[in-house]
């Protein structure tokens, strides 16, 4: 029953993909003389290079070729402007991982404190409300100025954008732990640390992990933009660099990789979430 549905869905997905590729092929099919539109030609001339690489929007075959080239050797390193996609992704993942980890270290204990103490909640709430809606990239100039290092600034931006969902979810999850469970712990005279780790943490874990999953999603969105801004390394820089080269097939390839890695990250947190979710 299920596998039948799965099979059907799989076939349908395949069909949609083929239609997509087909439409794309048709739309980018080169006529005898590639009719570069006036604007394109002008733009290409203005950019001074790459005119040979672009004949309008690349057809699937060119993009496929880019996939093959890059995936066949993902870890080559030929100088600052030419690294394999694996290396670039590793740079991005490293920044995201570090920024996210720092955010976890701050958000979970602080969220715990806020969730446990109505006083702290009231006192910190205005700050959280003002800081939360700020686009993480808006911090970039301040970060660059005060941290004086583009790599560290990128990590800081990831830290800032991961912080809020985790902080808010942790505080909310901790504050919403069932009264009954707290009362059980109270009647058993459970010590504060044991209560935090054995009652409140497991009770709030599903909410906390939801916050972490949201944070990770945002962090992965933001890292691409941040790397476009600060340059150097990373998958965002790769996209920007290939755009400057007008190598659109490479850009499309990188975009697909960003989506793929984002999906894997999300599923990772999805399964972590499943692990801590309890049925009542």
């Amino acid at each position: 029953m299920f596998s039948k549905l799965g099979l059907k869905a799989g076939l349908l997905s395949l069909l949609i993909f083929l239609i997509f590729i087909g439409t794309w092929s048709l739309a980018t099919y080169h006529k005898e003389a590639p009719a570069v539109s006036a604007a394109d030609a002008e733009y290409a001339a203005m950019m001074g290079k790459g005119a040979g690489k672009t004949g309008g929007f690349p057809p699937p075959s060119e993009v496929g070729a880019a996939f093959v080239t890059y995936l066949s050797d993902p870890f080559y390193d030929k100088g600052p402007n030419d690294k394999g996609i694996g290396i670039q992704l590793a740079h991005s993942l490293w920044r995201v991982g570090l920024g996210f980890f720092l955010a976890v270290i701050v958000a979970i204990p602080l969220g715990f404190a806020i969730g446990m103490s109505p006083l702290l909640f009231q006192a910190l709430n205005p700050f959280i409300q003002i800081l939360k809606p700020i686009s993480p990239l808006a911090w970039m100039p301040l970060a660059l100025y005060s941290l004086k290092d583009s790599d560290v600034s990128g990590i800081f931006v990831i830290f800032i954008c991961s912080l809020w969902p985790m902080l808010i979810n942790t505080a909310f999850g901790v504050a919403a732990v069932r009264r009954d469970w707290i009362n059980v712990a109270r009647t058993l005279e459970v010590k504060p640390l044991r209560k935090a780790f054995q009652v409140i943490l497991p009770a709030a874990a599903p909410t906390i992990l939801t916050g972490m999953r949201i944070s990770m999603g945002i962090a992965w969105l933001v890292i691409v933009a941040a790397e476009m801004l600060v340059g150097g390394t990373g998958v965002g820089y790769f996209v920007w660099n290939e755009w400057n080269n007008l190598a659109l097939p490479n850009v499309i390839f990188a975009v697909a990789m960003i989506g793929l890695v984002g999906m894997v990250l999300d599923q990772l947190f999805g399964s972590l979430q499943k692990l801590v979710t309890y049925r009542e």
Partner: peptide
Amino acid sequence: PSLDRGVVFQSHALMPW
């Protein structure tokens, strides 16, 4: 609250994890 008094709650209050 004290361990001298055991409480059985109306809603059982078992920890589901």
